[in-house]
Design a protein around this nucleic acid. Structure first.
Lengths: 153, 153
DNA sequence: CTGTGTGCAAACATTTTGCAAGCAG
DNA sequence: CTGCTTGCAAAATGTTTGCACACAG
């Protein structure tokens, strides 16, 4: 995993290349995405940034705009997690898919090369040129299976 | 594939079992889902039903309510297709995944047993009890690859 | 300075809910 | 008849846009 400084430089370069400015709001969003390496809804991220950087006086609008900007430039990825809605994750990791607990909402990541290859094969067989894919496995995680004795606190 | 009559009986039984009524709105929605065996957004379905059964005087509200009812009872399935938003499909078919053309929006279905097994294995390895999964491959279909000579009419 | 970025409020799009009237059983 | 169902309009939710001021370069 790459360091924050390096990624931040990439972000700054990206901004410069597009005649955009490096602002404290953009930085605080970017930093929060990096440090809390999780899956965020725009609102999650908004609340987190507001808590961590009260002085940046962030607005939800800016969060949306920054996420769109980052997504267009592949620095974050968005995924639709069923009921949980659209979420974003920092995009500096290699491709991976998701395993989602339907009880506690926890999201784990995994990779499987064999499946990736099969997917390519399926697409090719049908004449598709595959550009990307989504795979999400839903289920109940270990902890939630163990805690199912009415312990829903 | 099962016949409409049989499926309709299933629907009626379901309604009865829940003390719900069989209305012409519910029937026209159900029938449309069956006959146009496609992937619908609530609005698509609403427009289609309105066109096909003007006398049923359908409202979008009823479409949403009926889709929720059918989904709860596994007669339709909903999937989030990225930018295209949430869509519903009639659920009388066996499990399958989707191949989506990013250019024309066409959705093809496929099944692959090997992948299904691998998914089970991955979930088990991580202590998840898998309940379902989503797999969507995005790409460009054969036709759209061939037509890419500026023919975007 | 200049022009981009910002927060706010308003606008939007989509989905849900409250309600009075309609109709299935 | 009874009470579930309906369409409408209003509300709620999530996201985007218009604007005047702020600020990076």
């Amino acid at each position: 995993m790459r360091e924050y400084k390096e990624l931040l430089e990439e972000f700054k370069t990206l901004l410069k290349a597009n005649n955009l400015k490096f602002t404290k709001q953009r930085e605080s969003i970017f930093k929060t995405l990096f440090e809390y390496d999780k899956h965020f809804s725009p609102e999650d991220l908004y609340n987190l940034v507001k808590k961590r950087y009260p002085s940046s006086n962030i607005g939800i609008t800016t969060v949306y705009r920054t996420l769109n900007l980052l997504e267009e430039n592949k620095l974050v990825t968005s995924i639709s997690f069923g009921i949980a809605g659209k979420k974003y994750e920092f995009g500096h990791k290699s491709h991976h898919d998701h395993l989602i607990c339907e009880v506690c909402g926890k999201i784990e990541e995994f990779e499987d090369e064999t499946i990736e290859k099969l997917q390519e094969k399926i697409a090719k067989m049908r004449g598709f040129k595959m550009t990307e894919h989504i795979m999400q496995l839903f289920g109940i995680c270990k902890e939630c299976q163990e805690n199912k004795n009415g312990d829903d606190s």
